[in-house]
């Protein structure tokens, strides 16, 4: 009932030509940039890995082989489950959650500071300074971190200079560089949604709470955080999704023994050239991530519409 009215109003406001162009562009976006790529991945994930000659032939039928592989491992394997890949999967999800929470803790004070110090010159400069490092490619930033955390990097150099350690500490193998890199990669996506909502908070509300005797913690718990909840949720969703799906940071900064689930996907596509299997892994990661986000949104009573703000 409501939709046709929105459409007719849309066309009335924008004219027939402009309205059609805009409408077409939106449709293009939805169909070609969202739906088709995902559907094609989904389709791939249910197929056999066939040589090009046999595609479309009698052997090209749908199968659950790829999903079975993730859970059970190759057929005839000794283990009942594919422990290696499943462990990587679980570890990726948990690590992405940890990175998300770490970013939240790091960003909240900064977002509060930026949001409540209403656009002074210094704050604007600070925001620009925060953005500038992100003008550099993600992979290059990961390499920069690798150098910083390396055996002869700034951090080891400084700590040895101060006499805290006498041997360089292996940050790479301890995965510290990896977590730092993942956190750093998407930290702005946590910061800016939070900054935006906190900026929109009426400062008088904070003062009113203070006037009524509320402690700093209570002001944040009862006034600032409830107001910032959509921004927090939006930031956490993005950081979690992108961390779980990150590839550059794990490739460059991961230790020898650590493997990120996306690296498995990458291997299936690029090394073993088993695209259907890679597609199945990717779909599992996507579905799992979405499920986790939706579950947390349900628990913390956040609406989907709030996140889009």
């Amino acid at each position: 009932m409501k939709k046709p009215m929105i459409f007719s109003e849309f066309f009335r406001n924008n004219g027939k030509l402009m309205g059609s162009i805009l409408f077409f562009l939106v449709a293009f976006w939805i169909i070609f940039l969202i739906l088709l790529p995902q559907l094609s991945m989904l389709d791939y994930s249910f197929r056999y890995n066939l040589p090009p000659a046999e595609v479309g032939g009698p052997k090209d039928v749908y199968t659950l082989r790829n999903y079975r592989f993730l859970v059970k491992g190759p057929e005839g394997a000794s283990d009942a489950f594919n422990y290696v890949d499943l462990a990587v999967f679980v570890r990726t999800i948990l690590a992405a959650m940890a990175v998300t929470i770490m970013n939240l803790i790091l960003c909240y004070p900064l977002a509060y500071f930026l949001g409540q110090s209403k656009g002074t010159g210094f704050v604007r400069l600070l925001v620009v300074m925060l953005i500038v490092p992100y003008w550099i490619n993600e992979i290059l930033r990961a390499f920069a971190l690798r150098i910083i955390f390396g055996d002869v990097g700034v951090i080891n150099g400084l700590m040895m200079q101060l006499g805290l350690i006498d041997q360089p500490y292996d940050f790479i193998n301890a995965d510290i560089a990896l977590y730092a890199g993942l956190g750093y990669a998407y930290i702005l996506l946590m910061l800016f949604p939070m900054y935006n909502v906190i900026e929109s908070l009426d400062r008088n509300q904070i003062e009113a709470a203070r006037d009524m005797g509320a402690s700093w913690i209570r002001i944040h718990r009862r006034v600032v955080i409830p107001h910032a909840k959509p921004g927090i949720a939006s930031g956490m969703t993005m950081v979690f999704m992108l961390s779980a799906g990150a590839l550059a940071a794990p490739q460059v900064l991961g230790g020898t023994s650590s493997l990120w689930f996306t690296q498995l996907v990458y291997q299936r596509f690029n090394n073993t050239l088993d695209w259907p299997l890679g597609a199945a892994y990717a779909i599992v990661l996507l579905v799992a991530s979405i499920t986790i986000v939706l579950t947390f949104m349900k628990i913390f009573k956040v609406n989907m519409g709030d996140i889009g703000k």
Partner: peptide, 9 residues
Amino acid sequence: LIFQNLALF
């Protein structure tokens, strides 16, 4: 204090 914009939560 009662604020000009009331500042109700």
